[in-house]
Amino acid sequence: MGDFDNELFDVLKERPDKEPDKVFSNQMRQQLQKGQIVKRKRVSVATILTIPVTMAVLAFLIMICTGQTLDIKSAAQLSITQEKSLVFTGSLCILIALLTFIIFVFSKGYTKGWFIFLMFSLSFLAWVMNTVHAENQHLEEPTVPTNSKSFDHDQDQSLSLSDKEGR
């Protein structure tokens, strides 16, 4: 370590406003004596928005699980009981997992973080976009192949077309 370095930092060590303000120190000590520190509240957009967004996500999941219909049509209309029970079980698992996670987040006081806010906002946004998209596209049938009549009919048609082309 050179002398120059030491001189450099000796100057900074002697900065005139180095010591904490006595009024502040006494206030802090008194608050600690009382056993609680009155925290200076700062308005955080993230904190304000996290709670309603969380509640909206929860409401959405409860609606799915209890099978209540939304004013906007849901993205996928399920036809058979097996699918419905499968989705119900899946949704219930997701709900429990999410609920546990939310309780963890709130109990630990991580609600101020932008990460949490963004995650909830994005999931809420994804749900809204999905339902709006479904409404615009008028998706009345499931997108996945099933044993329903319409699918069989389409498949028959495509098979007969390929037969004709083959001849």
């Binding site: 900074l12 904490p20 303000d21 502040f24 802090m28 600690l32 520190i37 925290k39």
Partner: peptide, 22 residues
């Protein structure tokens, strides 16, 4: 204070730190 170069921030940090310590 050395980290932030601000008295206000240094006071906030001190307060928050001892709140966490408590």
């Amino acid at each position: 204070l050395y980290y932030t170069n601000s008295k206000q921030e240094a006071e906030d940090i001190t307060q928050e730190t001892f709140l966490k310590v408590l």
